[in-house]
Amino acid sequence: MNFDKLSPGELDGLLGQKGTEEKPMSANHLLQIEKEAFSELLAVSLSSAAGSLGEMLKREVSVSAPVLEVKPRDAVLAAAAAPFFVILGEYKGEVEGIQLLAVSKADVEALVKIWDATSEPDDMEKQFEMLQKLVETMFAPITKTMGMLMEKEVAYSLSGMDIVQSQEDFPIAKFTKEQWFAEAVFKVRLGAGAAAEFSLCLPVQLVKEIAGVLTGAPEEDYAEETRDMEYQSNNQTASEPKKNTAPTIQSVQFSNFDETATSQTEPNNLDMLMDIPLQVTVELGRTKRMVKEILGVSPGSIIELDKLAGEPVDILINNKVIAVGEVVVIDENFGVRVTDILSTADRLSKLR
C-alpha cells in the first residue's frame, strides 16, 4: 500500500481553498464599498461639471447618476449603438491609467445642433470640435476632485478620438493590455429636451486605487474580505447537492426594506466627498426677450425681471435650487441670508 504525500494543491482542494494565489478576484471584481465610493465621486464630479457644460451648450444641463458594472475587455462598449464616437484619454502623474468614453453619433449630432444651429449632420469637423470641448469641460472637475481627495498630482489628457461604424472596427486590445474594466453609463440632459448617453470605462485596478483612497482603506485591507467571499463561494459549490439528491424546500423570509437603512448609509458615503467644491449661484430673476429687443439693448437700458422687489432670491447648487433667501450687504460685498432651505435628504438628491 502506498501512502504518497499530497501536493499543496491537493491539500488546498481538500480544504476547499484555492491555493496561494494573491487576491485572485481583485483584477476582475469590485467590492460594494468600492462601487459606492467611485460612483459617488463620479456623480458629484459630473454634477459639478453640469454648470460648465450648461454655459458651453447655452442650456440648463443635468447629469444622471452613473450605473457602474464590471466587464471583461471584450465586452467593453458592447452595448454602444453604432455608429458611435470613441474618445481615448489618459490619466498621468502619480495616478496613471487609460480611459475610454463612448457616445452615439446620433446623440452627438443632436448636441452639435444645439451648440451651433448652423451645423449640418455630416459636418464631422464640427462634431469632433464639440466633443473635444465637451470632454475637456466634463473631466476637468473630475481630475481636480481626484487629485484633491487622493492628495496626488493627477492630470487628464485627451489622446485621440474616432468614429466607429461597427463593433468589429474597434479592436480595444490594440489600445490596452488591461483585461477588466469598470463601465459607468450616465446621461447628460439638456433641460426637458435632448439627452446624450455616455459610457465611461476605466481599468478595474485604477478604480480600486481611487476607491481605496476615498474610503480611507488601501486595497490590501480588502484582501481578507475578498478571501472570505471566495471561501464561501467554494464551500457553497462543494456542498451543492448531487442531481439525485432530493431538494430541500424551505419557506422564504423577506427582509424589511424600509427607508431607515438608506438614510443611515447616505451620510457615510457623503462624508468621503465633503471637500469637493460645488458652484453656488444666487439668481435675482429671469426674463425672456425677442431677438430685436436684445439687439436694441445699450448702456443705460433697463431689463425688467420676473420677480417683484423684495421677493426672495433663489440659491442654486450646480444649477439646482436648494434654498431661497434675501440679499444683504456684507462690508462691500453682496451676500444672501437663507430664509428657507430643503431638507438634508432633498439637498443630497439634488447633488446626484
Score class of each variant (00 low, 15 high):
N235D: 04
D314T: 05
F254N: 09
E283K: 10
F334Q: 10
I303K: 13
E304Q: 05
G325N: 06
E293T: 07
R289Q: 01
D331M: 10
N256C: 01
S233G: 13
P241R: 15
Q253M: 08
D271S: 14
I249H: 02
V328E: 06
V327D: 00
Q250D: 12
S233D: 13
P241C: 04
F257C: 00
N244L: 05
L316D: 12
K307G: 00
E332M: 01
A223E: 10
Q232C: 02
N235T: 08
K320T: 10
D221Q: 11
A345Q: 15
Y231D: 06
G285A: 10
E266L: 14
A223Y: 07
T339M: 09
L284I: 08
A261H: 03
G325I: 09
R289A: 06
E266S: 07
V282L: 13
P267N: 07
Q250K: 04
G335C: 09
F257G: 02
K292M: 11
T226F: 06
S239R: 12
G300C: 08
N318A: 09
T226N: 03
I317P: 09
M274V: 13
L270I: 09
I294L: 15
D314F: 08
T260Q: 15
M229H: 12
T237L: 06
T287F: 09
E326H: 10
I276W: 09
N268G: 00
V297G: 02
I302Q: 01
M274G: 07
F257Y: 01
K292R: 15
V297A: 11
N333Y: 07
D306G: 07
V282P: 12
V297I: 15
T344D: 12
K288R: 12
A345V: 13
K292S: 15
N244E: 07
D221N: 12
G310Q: 02
L295E: 03
Q250A: 15
G285T: 05
D221Y: 11
Q232G: 00
A261M: 05
M272C: 01
Q279R: 12
N268P: 04
L308F: 01
P241A: 14
Q232R: 12
S298V: 13
L284H: 06
K320N: 02
V282F: 12
R289W: 06
V291K: 02
I315D: 03
T226L: 11
P299D: 03
R227I: 00
K307I: 01
E332K: 04
S239A: 10
N235W: 02
